[in-house]
Every structure is written in C-alpha cells, then in structure tokens.
Design a binder for these strands. Sequence first.
DNA 1: AAGGCAAACAACCGCATTTTA
DNA 2: TTAAAATGCGGTTGTTTGCCT
Length: 212
Amino acid sequence: MGRSPCCEKAHTNKGAWTKEEDDRLVGYIRAHGEGCWRSLPKAAGLLRCGKSCRLRWINYLRPDLKRGNFTQEEDQIIIKLHSLLGNKWSLIAGRLPGRTDNEIKNYWNTHIRRKLVSQGIDPTTHRPMNEPSASQQSKEERREKCPDLNLDLRINPPYQQQKQQLFKTGTLCFACSLGIQNSKDCSCTNASTNSGYDFLSGVLDYRRLEMK
DNA sequence: AAGGCAAACAACCGCATTTTA
DNA sequence: TTAAAATGCGGTTGTTTGCCT
C-alpha cells in the first residue's frame, strides 16, 4: 500500500504566497501555536498543503528571523561547519540564530561555493583543488592529519543542553554557545574549558550520534 | 528602451525519519 | 511490534530581479 499524499492537491494553491495568505497563517499560529501542520491549512482557512505552510512559516514568517546580509563572521561559521558536517543545513542553521537551513543552503550555493572555488578551494572537500581527495588518501595519512579525532561512541547529554546550562551559569559566552571557542569575541570566564579543539566538541557529539 | 543573461531566493518534491495508534 | 501518518530535510526547480549590451 502506497503512502497517502500529504494533502488534497486538487484544491490547493501553489507558487508565491499572497499577503492575505501570510496574514492568515501568521494570525493562526499566533493564536494556536506551531504544529499540526496537516490540519492547519483547513483550520486557518488556507488553500495550501501543510508542508507549504510549515515552510512558509519557518523560512519567511517566523518573527525571530534575522534577514539581511550574512556577516563575515557568519560566513566563517558556515564554512567551518560545512567542512565538518557537510550538507547538514539544518544542523548548521541550528548554530546561526535567526537563519534558516534554506537560507544558508541558498547562500552557500550562490555565494560561498563560488568564493571558495575562486580561492582554489574545493567546496566539497574544503581542500585545495589540486590536492587528492579524502577517499584517495590512505588511512594512515588521514590519521596523521587528525591525530586527536576521537571516534569512540559515547552517549552524552544533548550538546545544546550542555551549552545552555553553561550559558545560564555564566561560564559560556555567546560566541562559545555557537561553538566558536577562542574567537576574538570569546569572553568566557572559564578559560580552562578552552582547549584548542573545543570548536569541534559539539560537532563530534553529533558525529558520535551519526555513527550508528 | 528592450532583450538576454545570470544571480538570488522562494517554494516544491521526494525521500528519510520520527511519532502515534 | 508494526504499519500508517506526520514531520523534517536536502536537492532541485521556477520566478523575480538586476545588470549588461
């Protein structure tokens, strides 16, 4: 038995959203909160499918969206995280408050990718274009370049929870809460937590979960 | 001014994952 | 335990906008 369609396609609008549709969606979510995307369109009086409503809200209508150009610092964070996570746009977006996965993905494809190419860097591997790719390298070569990469599988409390706790107690600055330890903006009171590889800690937590 | 082109971005689609009954 | 439903994610496409000739 196949999956049922996510919505009744015959009676749904497609394409750009009108001001009235936006107002209806925002009004409904303000009154009832997010969630139940499947039933939301009918309840809100919208001729859209639930997925479309969710996307419109998350990528465009959410009040906490930053909008506007990306800063140099955001550029650097995106490049760094992409080199570690690859195309995990939602994870990258999770570390850039006010930015969405769709926005970052578009920005990557239109700006950063081209910038890296013009600098002679492969945007996929983050290595110089003329260097052999990771898959062509021997295991020993990789081990030499990443001697401290700990691939042990461990169960840790979720990374965000740890960070939020530290942030609350005042031992973690805003920069570090985003995973940018030792940046020029870092003002952590607990210097002992700042090892040279702290930037990777959250990412490696994620990677532990990925390796299943 | 008009046409062509590329860049930018919003939105869609299909699949994967998670949740629920 | 399992199948269906709901939600989320990433790739791709379509439309708009701005620049150049």
